[in-house]
Amino acid sequence: MTTTHPESDVILEVKDLQKHFPTRTSGIIRRASDPVKAVDGISFTVRRGETLGLVGESGCGKSTAGRTMLQLLEPTGGSIHYNGRDITGAHGNDLRKLRTEMQMVFQDPYGSLNPRQTIGTIVAAPFDIQGITPKGGVKAEVQSLMERVGLNPEHYNRYPHEFSGGQRQRIGIARAVALRPKLIVCDEPVSALDVSIQAQVVNLLEDLQAEYDLTYVFVAHDLSVIRHISDRVAVMYLGKFMEVADRDELYSNPLHPYTQALLSAVPIPDPRKENKRERILLKGDLPSPINPPSGCVFHTRCPRFREELSDTERKRCTTEIPLVQKIGDHEVACHFAGPSKVEVL
């Protein structure tokens, strides 16, 4: 295993990460049976200061991946190196110390704030937990944080229900940046917000990133938001990475048939363009992550498999798990990766 050094530009290195959730058999005596493979062997690096977008449809494992890389969930397999240090399975004090450097912003600004605590208490919690007293005292620091994220510092003693959805997400962000972490995993931070508010929060995240030298892993299902905020994008399907590439490269020249279908499905707010577009429609539903399809997990819904391949080629898709291969600047897990025949965007 290669080790990275603290001074290198890689902040997080994830190798073959797995997160399986156990299930049990039915019957009078219940044994463990096939687990739900929410994350099933993903490897990637996150470079210091960049934003890695993690995109996919519901059930693809992107949120689980985000939580597992922060050790909010214990990985079933694989390793996570933070600044060159193996943090896989860290717990107790080690984990608590790591939390000063790695934080999370959650999707649901209602569910992730304790309704019985004031905003001041919520934003001050990281200081309490870590036993850190910032210069000038906790209250002054919390109020300056509130101001920084665009909240009125006088609302220090108010409760979450007195704020709108967008403001609540700002509270969650203030809490996440309180300890000046290096890495923040943002799990669908804007998907519960209205369009006009979404842009405010996205801009805030970008400003904070520049100001505090933050690295983001940005988990979302909205391909437009991902395109805007990410430097690199990883596309996930059934617990695995399908394609990873730099943002503009991925959107202008997607090589994996799943990426192509995903991009082509997004309606564009431009009627003339929209009317001319040819859509790659995926057939059927997402297979179960308990019994994922053999070979390439995407073959059951793959338009290329269905329309373009010969029987011998298909055999390969149904039996052989595609390894991640480098094609140009893309990493693609497909035996027959290549540009789409129709223009996707």
Binding site: S164, G166, Q167, D194, V195, S196, I197, Q198, A199, Q200, V202, N203, E206, L223, S224, V225, R227, H228, I229, R247, D248, Y251, L263, V266, I268, P269, D270, K273, L345
Partner: peptide, 20 residues
């Protein structure tokens, strides 16, 4: 204010300030 999937990234989104 909407990020566009079919365009190169703008430097910044232009949100509508304030609340409904």
């Amino acid at each position: 204010s909407m990020p566009r999937i079919d365009r190169e990234r703008l430097e910044r989104l232009q949100p509508i300030p304030g609340n409904p």
